[in-house]
Design a protein around this nucleic acid. Structure first.
Lengths: 223, 223
DNA sequence: ATTACCCTTGTACCAAAGTACAATTGGCAC
DNA sequence: GTGCCAATTGTACTTTGGTACAAGGGTAAT
């Protein structure tokens, strides 16, 4: 019996998604959450879900931070991002951050069902009109960030956890305690992380990684 | 004959600013630059300008770094920051870093002229709607951040410059080079900064300080 | 079963970070 | 002037951070 988590702060949306899930899976166990904390608790208690439908905007989730947290702490759980928006950049970034799909809320039910089946089968889904419209980099700063994203994706799950804690400013010693491993091991991970991210200090890694969350800066027209 | 430097990578913007400068000063000598390197060269050759209009975003300047470099190497030159953005936090920080004014590109010409005159007279300028709209905390997470902001404000100007460079992930050695001081001095500043901010590592300082800039998340409507 | 990769840990070493104490200079205010 | 403070620098020291190398155990794929 597949366990599916639906995380959205809007009950109506959860209901609609539940219908789609019931169509796409055989006797699913549907677990609903209205906030990120609930999702994390659920995942901790059941270890890993078979699928997680995650809204980008809910209490406790301001953007991709929730996705990143979940992906790094529960890499085994496939995540499909649900969003009211469908900006190509958002889609790309969500997928780059490890989401297995991106479903705009405006998607027809039938297509949602197909998308969920696709992801359950190990595929990835994105809105049709984006399959081709991808290779269109617009601004300059974007490129560098995308490069960095690609590098973050080469990190192993444990390394992502380390990077996560690194991002809170913790010492190696504290990270070791948190992950219940030796400080030596943390150092090994940090070294590997620095190489993969092509930076030369933890501080730089933190600065770079920090941008992944909040580089949603609206390009403002010249005055 | 006052020497005024206009640094912006957009010719149209430079033109508009030049007009304002000509209205605000008597027979000004206007020097234009499209990138940071040119500004530094100009300042080195003429020693100090009477006013520098500096865009936040140009080749070689990703944010406050250029402002910091200029302020530290040519403290005698008053700098007015020109920006397409007008986030109150940006304004506050620019002024904290030693800018004598902050002029959004959307400002009417007449007001720009007045602002330039004000700064030339030794005053500081900021957009009107920010003089009062500052002390308005809205969300919960704000409280802690405001505490932190209060602590940041206890930093001396030079310490803020150091913190700024710290936030780019630079080593003490690099910071020393940028500010043209000894690494020992940088260490002294960092130590002092850590104490004032009540953190125990540069990484934590960077993480905390990072929040001050970019927690500007646009609230998006539900689908 | 052999390869490959991840996670783990250890030792050893070097570089960077951070603290503590002391001292000089210069500006500014009372 | 005297005092205060920012800024600077130095020496000396301890703690973190980071690299290099080596190695054992686990899992998954070929």
């Amino acid at each position: 019996m597949p366990q599916i988590i639906i995380a959205d702060d809007h009950p109506m949306v959860r209901g609609a998604l539940a219908l789609a899930v019931e169509s796409a899976f055989d006797q699913p166990e549907i677990l609903e959450c209205a906030h990120l904390a609930g999702v994390m608790q659920l995942l901790e208690s059941i270890g890993a879900a078979d699928l997680l439908l995650l809204d980008l905007r809910m209490p406790g989730v301001d953007g991709f931070e929730g996705l990143v947290r979940i992906r790094s702490q529960f890499p085994a759980t496939p995540v499909v991002v649900i969003s009211a928006l469908e900006d190509p950049r958002l889609v790309r970034e969500a997928l780059a951050l490890g989401a297995m799909g991106f479903i705009p809320k405006s998607t027809p039910r039938a297509e949602i069902v197909a998308a969920l089946s696709l992801v359950a089968a190990g595929g990835t889904y994105r809105p049709d009109d984006l399959s081709l419209a991808e290779p269109a980099p617009d601004s300059k700063g974007r490129a560098a960030d995308d490069d960095f994203l690609q590098r973050v994706l080469t990190l192993t799950p444990q390394q992502r956890r380390v990077l996560q804690l690194l991002g809170t400013g913790k010492l190696n010693k504290e990270i070791a305690y948190d992950l219940d491993i030796a400080e030596t091991t943390v150092k090994a991970h940090v070294s590997s992380i620095l190489h993969k991210l092509r930076v030369y200090s933890r501080t730089q890694a933190v600065v770079m990684a920090g941008r992944l969350h909040l580089d949603s800066f609206a390009d403002v027209a010249e005055g």
